Computed example of a mutant assay.
Amino acid sequence: MDNVLTEALVRALAVGTPLLLACLGAILNERAGVVNLGVEGLMAVGALAAFAVAAGSPDANLWLAVGAAMLAGAALALLHAVATVTLRANQFVSGLALALIGTGAAGLLGKRFEGLPLFNKVADWNLGGFTISPFTVAALLLAGAMAFWLGATRSGLTLRSVGENPAAADVLGVNVGLTRVLAVLGGGALAGLAGAFLALSYRSSWADNMTAGLGWIAVALVIFVGWRPLRAIAGALFFGFLYYLQFRLQGNSPVPTEVFSAMPFVLVLVVLALAGLRGQAGNAPAALGRAYVRGER
């Protein structure tokens, strides 16, 4: 029984890691008032950038590959920042376009890497018989650090004020546009880091559509956890466990495989509906999704 529980926890942590990293990035965006639905595309380009740097050479620097993934995610997120903050385009439309651009570009440019070996991977740490990825440790530490930063520091309060009342923040001397751009870039870097985990640790290979909808679940997870980083840990573990059940039950049940494949996405709709019923959506930043124009009321 202990072995089963340990396996379930390890698998839930593994699948939950990219969800947690991407969710933290989305929380950072949305706390500043910017919705970014392009997380799936950001994760895809991050995974491709990491694999492109690390593949084909046994001497490749894996941490340089991680940095490349974060840089690629931030670079693509810059398009969203320019469109929504500078040009004041619709944030939802821009995010959807970003998701399509990211996944399409990663699929096209990644064809040359299909089948290439990854000689080295980011090795898991063995903690007394319990293995854990350095990415997972980093994600947990980032969640705690972000919670502290948002709740107990001046810069964190500044970011939150931009998401709640940008006009008031502007009157107090805060550069609303710059704050939002930096939040979007930081969120893109975290989504790219989530992609790096997939390429360098979890799957250790490149394949088209390797994100498999995790980015969309991360976007929904933000609402489910009420825009709170520490709650995101529990939410990521919950959905990670659902993925574990999906693979565990396939082949051991008369239920068609497609049912298990759809289960995480169906449960996303369920938990979002429950969040709406209990008023969780009311916890959203007051200015979320709205462009700020100085002087407008």
Rank of each mutant, 00 (worst) to 15 (best):
L42D: 01
M70G: 05
T131E: 14
L37V: 11
A47Q: 03
F265H: 12
S57T: 10
P285A: 05
P229E: 09
W227S: 01
I132P: 03
S204D: 07
S133R: 06
S204W: 02
F113C: 06
L190N: 02
Y202F: 10
A49T: 06
G240A: 05
L109F: 12
T136N: 04
L13D: 01
F239M: 09
A220Q: 06
L108T: 10
P134I: 05
D208R: 14
Q246P: 07
A74M: 08
A232E: 09
L100I: 15
V222E: 01
V53S: 02
G104L: 10
V225C: 15
T17Q: 04
A65P: 03
L230C: 05
L21G: 06
L62K: 01
S261Y: 12
F260P: 01
G215D: 02
N61F: 08
F148L: 15
S155V: 14
G289P: 03
A52W: 11
L249P: 06
L288C: 05
A77H: 09
P166Y: 00
A291G: 06
R112D: 11
R248K: 15
G192I: 04
N36H: 04
A183C: 10
G95H: 02
R228L: 11
E164N: 13
A236R: 05
N29H: 09
L182N: 02
T17G: 10
A8H: 13
Y202T: 12
V271C: 09
W63T: 09
D124A: 15
L214T: 13
G282H: 11
T131V: 07
E296K: 14
G41I: 04
G240Y: 02
M70C: 12
A232T: 07
S205N: 14
A123G: 12
G240S: 03
T158F: 06
A284K: 00
N175V: 00
R297I: 00
L108N: 08
Y243D: 13
A232D: 11
A44M: 07
M263Q: 08
L42S: 02
T86L: 15
G188H: 01
E7T: 15
L48V: 01
F92H: 12
A69Y: 02
A273F: 14
M1T: 14
R294T: 01
L98A: 03
A50Y: 08
P229F: 06
L185F: 00
G16L: 08
N283E: 13
V176L: 01
Y292G: 00
V270K: 13
L242I: 15
E296T: 07
F260G: 07
G102H: 03
R294V: 00
L98G: 02
V271R: 08
L48Q: 04
F197T: 09
L62Q: 07
A287R: 00
L87S: 11
F241K: 13
R248N: 06
F239I: 03
T86A: 14
N165S: 00
V271P: 07
L140C: 06
V219S: 02
A212I: 07
L87K: 14
P256D: 11
G104C: 07
V176E: 00
E7D: 11
A49G: 10
G110T: 04
L20D: 04
L79H: 08
